[in-house]
Structure formats: C-alpha cells, structure tokens
C-alpha cells in the first residue's frame, strides 16, 4: 500500500488531519482524529515507534507545556485543591489534553509525509501546480535536517576526542558547549549548501522554464476512492463538531 498511494492523496490526508486538529475543541473528537491518523500511518507502514523515539525530546517538551497549562488554567470543578486554591481544575485538564492531542495529531500527520520519498513528494507538489523551485526547496530543506545533525555530531565528537566527556558535564556547562558548537555547525551547513547549489547549477537547474519529469504521477482508482472517502469523513467530522458546538471559531 505504501508505494501505491499517490503523494497528492497523502498531502490531502495531512491537510485534512491538521485542519481538523486545529478546528476541533473536544477531547473525544480529537482522540478519534488521532486514532484515524495513527491508522493511516499503520496502513502506510510508517515506523511510528522509531519516529516517537527520535522525537522523544520534543514530545517531553510538549508534555511539560501541557502540565504547566493544566496547572495555570483555572475554571470548572476543582480536582486537586491545595488549601483554598485549586492546583488542578477540570478546565485546566481539558485545555492541556486538547493541546497534547492537537500537537500529537500534527506530529502523526507529519509522519504520513515520511512514507513518501522526497522526490515523489516534489512530483506530487508539481502536479498540484506548485512552482518547481519551491517544491525542490521544500524537499532539499528536509535533506538538510540530517546534514545539520551530522555536522553537529562531528563537532561533538571532535570535542569528545579532546578529552571532554559531554555526558558528565553539568547542565550550564553543557549549554555552553552546545552554544559554542552552534556557530561552526551553521557555517558548515551553509558551506555545504553552497557546494550543493553549485552541483545543481552545473546540472542545469532552472536552465529551462519547462522541465521534464522522468516519472509521471497518475492517480489510480484507489487514489480517487481514498480522496472521496477522506473528504466525506472530514465533512462528517466538521458537521458533527458544528452540531455539537465544539468547532473553534475565529
């Protein structure tokens, strides 16, 4: 299934899931949307556990924000009182859960994109009439995430080889070391991007206003069916949320 689905359909999944996540303000609806997102990822054989492992620091920040939110927002029934003040109230809990679910849906929808290789995604974006330069830039920027991490790790190793065990450093010293590494890492990435730009230039990037595509993307019956089903489900969700008055209004 992973290879058969057109990238444009995956983009539609991402747009619909994130839109619903932003518009919903109900824990039950959001939980269902999250489950749908997870099911889509499972069908596309995305390695969710690996992604969670990679994003563990980001997820722990989200959980921290949710906890702070739950303790700072007051209203509704008091759940945990401390003397005369409420430590945790139902409104605070609801807000923090909604925040956590919303962010989880966005992360899970983002994972859908990882089931398609960068080039296929470019082809999809081009078919949606996005200018080639912009589509290519989007794809190439994703390529630079591992490059940045690789550059940073190389410099960390260089520091470790000079006898500094970063794991044993105190937090303020660790932050100082990381801050010290940021500037050379960024300049290293900029240099690599300049070489990459040269590599693109010598191979005719933007040489012609029109560009051939080796692979022509074609939507199949499965793709059209999925588009129809996902639009219907999204419409049903929106109607349900509107009916129950749990749609975010701007």
């Amino acid at each position: 299934m992973k290879k058969r689905i057109d990238p444009r359909v995956k983009l539609l999944f991402i747009i619909l899931l994130t839109t619903l996540a932003v518009l919903a303000k109900d824990v039950i609806y959001m939980s269902i949307i999250l489950v749908v997102g997870i099911v889509i990822n499972l069908c596309l054989k995305t390695d969710i556990l690996y992604a969670i492992k990679r994003l563990r620091h980001f997820l722990s920040i989200l959980i921290f924000i949710a906890i702070v939110q739950s303790l700072s927002i007051k209203g509704g029934r008091v759940l945990i009182p401390i003397g005369n003040t409420a430590l945790l109230s139902t409104k605070g809990l609801q807000f923090s859960l909604e925040f956590l679910l919303r962010m989880s849906i966005i992360v899970v929808s983002g994972l859908i994109a990882t089931s398609t290789d960068g080039r296929e995604m470019i082809d999809g974006l081009l078919k949606l009439h996005m200018p080639y330069e912009l589509a290519f830039m989007t794809s190439i920027s994703l390529r630079f995430i591992p490059v940045f991490s690789e550059e940073f790790k190389t410099r960390l190793n260089a520091i470790s080889m000079r006898g500094i065990d970063i794991k044993k450093l105190s937090l303020p010293k660790k932050i100082r070391v990381y801050a010290y590494l940021i500037s050379p890492t960024i300049s290293g990435c900029i240099m690599r991007s300049e070489v990459l730009a040269k590599s693109m230039q010598v191979r005719g990037f933007r040489a012609h206003p029109k560009r051939t595509m080796l692979r022509e993307l074609k939507m199949g019956i499965l793709d059209y069916t999925l588009v129809l089903i996902s639009l219907l489900i999204a419409a049903a969700f929106l109607a349900g949320m509107y009916k129950h008055g749990i749609l975010v209004t701007f």
Binding site: D117, R119, M200, R203, G204, H208
Partner: peptide, 17 residues
Amino acid sequence: FSPLVIEELAFAPENLN
C-alpha cells in the same frame, strides 16, 4: 543529493528538458 541513483542521474536531463 537525491535519495536514489536513478533520480540523481535523471536530474540534469530533466532540467535540460
């Protein structure tokens, strides 16, 4: 910079239309 060999090889002629 492409993930696959075939894509890397196609990049230049694609650009040259």
